[in-house]
Nucleic acid binder design. Structure first.
Lengths: 334, 334
DNA sequence: ATCGCTTTTGCAAGCGTGTGCAAATGCTGC
DNA sequence: GCAGCATTTGCACACGCTTGCAAAAGCGAT
């Protein structure tokens, strides 16, 4: 154990022959310090290997620079892409991300937010799980900002970033019909997330408006295996669908693989498939999945720019982003 | 702006009618406090919504509870899977993960480690990039622990977790030969990571030992597109390979897709393919990729258990983990 | 009640930083 | 040289917590 401990501003001050305030001001942007002493301090700091202690700074300023990312299923393509974009943006804004994994228990979003409070995070971004109202209230009351991505609820205070899920669903429904399909199906998971349900309801409603019924199947989590399972259910029916909209790309990939390899169907000749998210795999030539692109970069930018803005707290802020349809080869025509 | 600020131990103490020390001890495990006062404190804390300030605690204890994860290409299947496992394990051990994205610049690993130092992280886990020696020295000197995953270098002090890459490469070489292949190829990226190069050299050496040459191609980053590009190079040769070992699964997926859809080749009949990592997509039925499974859970467990152990600092610690061969359908026979 | 012992409790001194305030310093124009 | 002003500097307090130390309290036995 070297146990040398970290070098403090005090030591730098002594080495540079100035007061401790001077070194503090040198590392505080916008503080008044002469160029001469500034240089002396910087030299001494460099020689000693000094780094401002952000714990202490956060304690004083009552602003830690930490932003909590609360997320489950980190290994999933869409989630990890969003994570990438968010950390990138946060670092651009001088913030640092604290990552909290809520895969395990159900109340884990609450535990996570508690952790965020303990470290006095300036803000939390929630990508999964619906935290308890009492906790979010606590966050907000303590001046912590909150961003909810794709999980709109009726709370007051947090920024909510959503997509035009229902509208997108309607667009794909007409695309299916235009491609000559008439036996529509929707493949969903049992997760029941607001955005997933919005896609389902939007799709069913749009179909109904065109005088068509929709076969809806839901299964398990929002993953590849569930897509296969739903295919099992849909493709063993008396009347097979000729177009299926999957709530996520992972479901779509699973569905396509099952349709092709297990039921020997051709996509898109015998069945058209569409997904949602535009994960990387959707563009792989084995799939060529027509899908809606989640605007991850835009989402991250919106979230972070709101977090760091001086003048947030604007009462009931909601951002609704647009999901572009990326046309590939899993739907006829185009 | 409510600006109510956080509630402090002082306020809890007053409400509970005890001293500030008492409430501090209540939240410090292993401190001496009578059950009666403890209860009074807990009640008061709950009523006021008190949470220990980990910034201040870290300042006092000289131990923040923060572990930095330094990682690039977060959106990648293997990386995100490892990230998931690591955060899980860290939380199990009462630590919290600070995520640092090093996608952009080259010296960004250094910047990241600086950030880790500023927040007085107890440890850093490096999944990407080779930090400068001066920085790692600084980390170690300040009692910060360091874990390097799959990027062995000769530094003294950090824990290094590696795989038996070369051995795995040799195993797959013999598997290819046993499947009747004789025109071997290796598909790599230009990243030149130690583990990637170990796979390449191991494969070439094993082939040479069996009297076979290997066509080696390298291209771009370690992703799907590179796999396609390498396929372009390998499959337009006068003599096509009949077996190719790809340094990662993403490369393998890209290679397979190009081989099948662009060159109309059949896998595994005309060409056998193997990968490395065992990402989720490898098991998708469009690929059925035979590959080596990275022991992500084991890796995470090793890393974290070493970090939290009392007695680390054991001079030159290296862990070499085994990668199991997962046999699927991209190689004949089996 | 007194003693000896263990447990609990409060005091106060830090941890490393930011910042208001007043003193000190530098600069400009006579 | 000096007055007038802007800028820089140091002091000292505060932030919220932990913890060594000594005083206080509990407790059982004499």
């Amino acid at each position: 154990m070297s146990q040398k401990l970290f070098v403090s501003a005090q030591e730098v001050a002594e080495k540079a022959g100035v007061s401790r305030s001077a070194v503090s001001r040198t590392f505080t942007s916008g503080a008044s310090v002469s160029p001469k002493t500034r240089q002396k301090v910087l030299d001494a700091a460099d020689a000693l290997g000094y780094h401002v202690n952000h714990l202490a700074r956060g304690l004083m300023r009552n602003e830690s620079g930490i932003v909590c990312l609360i997320v489950s299923e980190i290994g999933t393509p869409y989630r990890s892409a969003l994570l990438r974009a968010l950390t990138q943006q946060l670092q651009n804004s001088g913030k640092v991300a604290m990552l909290i994994n809520t895969d395990r228990s159900d109340g884990s979003a609450d535990l996570a937010l508690r952790q965020a409070i303990r470290y006095r995070a300036d803000a939390s971004i929630i990508l999964s799980g619906l935290p308890d109202k009492s906790i979010t209230d606590l966050c907000l009351k303590n001046g912590q900002r909150l961003v909810l991505i794709n999980r709109d609820d009726d709370r007051e205070g947090p920024l909510k970033i959503n997509l035009d899920d229902a509208d997108a669903a309607a667009r794909i429904a007409t695309a299916f019909v235009r491609a000559g399909c008439s036996k529509l199906a929707f493949a969903n998971s049992q997760a029941g997330t607001p955005s997933l349900m919005a896609r389902e309801h939007g799709f069913v409603a749009a179909a109904k408006a065109m005088g068509l019924d929709v076969m809806v199947e839901r299964f398990g989590h929002t993953g590849y295996e569930s897509g296969r399972a739903v295919a099992q259910q849909l493709l063993t029916r008396k009347e097979r669908p000729d177009a299926v909209f999957c709530a996520t790309d992972l479901l779509a990939c699973g569905f396509m693989d099952a349709a092709r390899h297990q039921f020997s169907m051709s996509v898109p000749d015998q069945i058209c498939v569409a997904g949602f998210d535009d994960i990387e795999q959707a563009s792989w030539s084995s799939y060529g999945l027509t899908t809606f692109a989640q605007p991850v970069d835009m989402t991250a930018r919106e979230a972070v720019s709101w977090l760091v803005s001086e003048t947030a707290e604007s009462e009931n802020h909601t951002v609704r982003l647009h999901a572009d349809l990326v046309w590939r080869t899993s739907i006829r025509g185009g």
